[in-house]
Nucleic acid binder design. Structure first.
Lengths: 220, 220
DNA sequence: AATCAAAGTATCCAACTGTATACCTTACTG
DNA sequence: CAGTAAGGTATACAGTTGGATACTTTGATT
């Protein structure tokens, strides 16, 4: 008890059975178009090249596997989408930069997008709150970046947060379109950029309307 | 062959086995949080109170059932969302009227929303193209109404269509939030209304920017 | 070198699944 | 009234699943 050591890999044993099982689960769910909870532990042990009982060495239930997969997806998304924002900062047009980098991420990690999108829109999925939290975190960090760089002149931080959240969710959902029609990447990128511009401009317009209304109320 | 009659109900036999099976499939998929393709015909026959072999009297495969369910969902959505637009026309604030009516529809048909939303975001789901078609049809009709009533002064019909499509999809996706948190209906309604206003105002702003750019290009 | 826990394997079981075949009931037909 | 077709039922079968129990391998520690 007193001489514990974590010298090994942080997750997964020598042959990384745990990680292989999670990876297999994601692959199968993405390939067969099912929810993670419908994959079946025997099937994914087969895909991972393991005996089906090895599953119980790493997880108790199927829920346990799903929770672990949620963290896996969450981590990948956090890294990927954070990189999206950073790359946007280095781009002449921040919006275009963010969209292009995001589409790169989608093409590089299709399984994460496929499974994540479906689980995000699956009521009662244990992954849904986790993914919602990821999107909110990304949106918050995005707000920080936008305000610190004065990219958009918006006073209400809450409104800016809502806009960022909507945009993040919109991009996330439209990752499927790219996977479905890889040759139409340009059109999809254009659609995303147009949506983002519309959102920010609309947000500014709403703010102007509100301040004007307040001014009128005072002057009356 | 020459003396066919369609005096019976349009779909389903005397006891409506076909419709009952579809209904059971939707209920189970909504309850268990799975895809329709993962429900299992035996399970839904049980839910419908029928022998599990009766399934084959009405459908060949599971795909056949899914296709029929797609039409069922499609029909319900078409009727429901069309009613949304019509109710908006009779309302002082068209946006608020549409949102309220839509939320009523969600509360009345939660299963359709739950299953439809998940299938819409499930890559390779046979229902996905059907649902996308439904959303596009709704958006088109919405454009007709908007232009005929001059509700929004937008020249580009294509841009208006894109905005309508985004809004429809946004409302559809956020039906889950209402089912998940029924007591927060007001907040959800406010969020939807804000989103729609932002979209239209942003669209107008984009148009103004473009025309201004064209004018500058001419005068230079 | 002996030990010990983690990871992986082999085998077994009850329950469930999709499918096939055969039978019954109902209602409408010529 | 005999016939016929659709909807529904009963039973049986092979394959798969999740889970339990017992065994072997691995690799690191003392």
């Amino acid at each position: 008890m007193s001489t514990q050591q974590a010298t090994q890999q942080e997750v997964g044993g020598p042959s990384g059975g745990k990680r292989r099982l999670i990876k297999a689960a994601l692959q199968l769910a993405a390939r067969d178009g099912t929810t993670l909870s419908a994959v079946g532990l025997r099937e994914m042990a087969r895909e991972a090249g393991l005996n089906h009982n090895t599953f119980y060495r790493h997880f108790r239930n199927a829920e346990d596997l799903i929770a672990a997969a949620a963290e896996e997806i969450s981590a990948q998304l956090m890294v990927g989408l954070k990189a999206v924002r950073q790359s946007a900062a280095r781009h002449a047009d921040a919006t275009v930069g963010a969209v292009e980098y995001f589409l790169d991420f989608v093409e590089a990690n299709p399984d994460v997008i496929i499974v994540g999108t479906r689980e995000l829109h699956s009521l009662n999925s244990p992954m849904r709150p986790v993914l919602q939290g990821v999107l909110e975190t990304i949106a918050k960090e995005s707000v920080e970046q936008i305000t610190s760089q004065n990219l958009v002149k918006l006073e209400s931080r809450e409104q800016l947060f809502q806009v960022s959240l909507d945009i993040t969710r919109y991009m996330f959902s439209h990752g499927l379109d790219l996977i479905d029609h890889p040759q139409e990447r340009e059109a999809i990128a254009a659609k995303l950029v147009a949506h983002i511009r519309r959102q920010f401009l609309g947000s500014i317009a709403v703010q102007q309307l509100e301040t004007r209304r307040q001014r009128d109320a005072i002057s009356t």
